[in-house]
């Protein structure tokens, strides 16, 4: 799997004004029985989108509204992505075409998982977040540009706002670098640490008499 690469993109907004959207809502657990990453776009927000018989709800859930088709930025409420550590959540968001999520805060594990899949969890101050939520609802033609290299988000009126992102994740995504490859460059240090910290846990060998 090639590491994701993120640069600059311009796209529309989708409003999801709910707080504490947990990963059980993003991908319900019964869709976790897959053994690959493919095909999760339909699992995304499944129980908010579909009736029991599999048909789309009417009126449709916001991400299915035709007027938001193709919009790649989700404007969500506070503390997005709490609960389960399932990476199926960013896989499904990515499969659906979401490139960034704007919120006032994110749950830790979701944030880490999203970055590894090239989806930007962007934390905004409450006021700017509120403005963009309103724009998302009112102005369907509005687009936002996100430039990762400068960590700026440009609102429809042309104002550029800086958003926080740690420099390491930023570089990895800009250059399309892989975290596992990065760790592997430190093989000698890993070996040295292992040798000096032998530890007492051994999963292969029970030692106490049974």
């Amino acid at each position: 799997m090639a590491a994701p690469r993120v640069g600059t993109f311009t796209t529309g907004l989708v409003p999801l004004p709910a707080e504490n959207v947990d990963t059980d809502q993003i991908v319900p657990a019964r869709y976790l029985k897959v053994i690959d990453k493919a095909g999760l776009a339909d699992a995304l927000f499944h129980d908010w989108r579909f009736e029991a018989d599999g048909s789309k709800k009417s009126p449709p859930f916001v991400i299915d509204e035709p007027r938001y088709a193709g919009h790649g930025i989700l404007v969500a409420g506070d503390n997005f992505g709490g609960g389960s550590s399932r990476e199926h959540a960013p896989w499904a968001l990515g499969a659906f075409g979401i490139k960034a999520i704007l919120a006032t805060s994110f749950a830790d594990i979701f944030k880490s998982n999203a970055l590894k899949n090239g989806i930007l969890p962007i934390i905004l101050p409450a006021e700017l977040h509120g403005t963009l939520m309103q724009i998302a609802k009112d102005d369907l033609a509005a687009t936002v540009t996100i430039e990762l290299a400068t960590a700026t988000l440009t609102t429809p009126d042309g104002t550029a706002h800086q958003f926080p992102i740690d420099a390491f994740s930023q570089k990895m995504l800009l250059d399309g670098l892989d975290e596992l490859d990065y760790i592997r460059t430190q093989g000698e240090k890993i070996l040295a640490h292992e040798t000096s910290h032998p530890g007492t846990i051994n999963t292969l060998q029970p030692n106490a008499p049974r």
């Binding site: 550590s85 399932r86 880490s112 590894k116 899949n117 975290e179 596992l180 760790i183």
Partner: peptide, 10 residues
């Protein structure tokens, strides 16, 4: 602590 699947691989 809990980790995601990319981290499981790491």
């Amino acid at each position: 602590f809990g980790i995601g699947t990319s981290e499981v691989e790491m």
